[in-house]
């Protein structure tokens, strides 16, 4: 023990998975396929710059600006790029607009494909086998688990994401939000609302 309290006790021990990840990383670095600085930059980006607040700004703008909503509907990738979002995991983004007749829900039945530039990395439950299978077989049951009950007669459309095409749900703008700024609107758009497992409400405003 060094006695330095800023050092963790397990600093000098790797679990098997830690050692394996180090092995894969050092192998690729040694072969010249990756640069350690690039790896650090990727981690920093996903930890600090990319997340569901990006998507919330897209949704808020679509709610506020009908022309933008049209562009988002026509070409999601180009419309989110207008706000500066894009890159890996966002090569082809499709915005699925909820309507009174149809609610949208996104899933990746294969693995965990997700629109990274606008939503960040997916929550653990999105990657779980029960969600990946039940979203398709029993979407209404899944929504019930999330405490969401849709109006009777509103259909659910499930979108299965792939490596090439990834979806973001644009919820219906809730009542009681007339005159709100885009920032105020973005604050009530949750990550789950853009997956389709939650609905925004004006009461969420803090």
């Amino acid at each position: 023990m060094s006695g330095h309290d800023h050092h963790h006790d397990h600093d000098n021990h790797f679990t098997p998975i830690e050692a394996r990840v180090r092995a894969l990383e050092s192998l690729m670095v040694a072969k010249g396929y990756v640069d350690p600085a690039a790896l650090d930059a990727i981690v920093e980006t996903y930890e600090t710059k990319i997340g569901p607040r990006n998507g919330a700004r897209v949704v808020a703008k679509a709610w506020s600006d009908p022309d933008y909503a049209q562009r988002l509907k026509a070409d999601g990738t180009a419309a989110v790029a207008e706000l500066g979002y894009g890159g890996r995991g966002g090569e082809h983004i499709v915005a699925c607009f909820n309507t009174p007749e149809e609610h949208n829900l996104i899933v990746c039945t294969l693995c965990s494909c997700y629109p990274w530039p606008v939503l960040g990395l997916p929550p653990v439950w999105y990657k779980s086998p029960p969600y990946r299978s039940r979203a398709v077989l029993d979407p209404r049951g899944v929504l019930a688990d999330f405490g969401v009950t849709l109006p009777e007669g509103q259909r659910i459309r499930v979108w299965d994401s792939t490596a090439e095409t990834r979806f973001i749900v644009v919820p219906l703008r809730p009542a009681g939000t007339q005159g709100w700024s885009e920032e105020a609107l973005a604050a009530i758009v949750s990550r789950d609302a853009m997956i389709g497992t939650a609905l925004p409400s004006a009461e969420a405003r803090r």
Partner: peptide, 21 residues
Amino acid sequence: WQAQIFALAVALQNRGVFSAD
């Protein structure tokens, strides 16, 4: 380590070692 494996997979795609698909 989760961040490291994720970043490695992304970096190798960026480099074209394998595709997203």
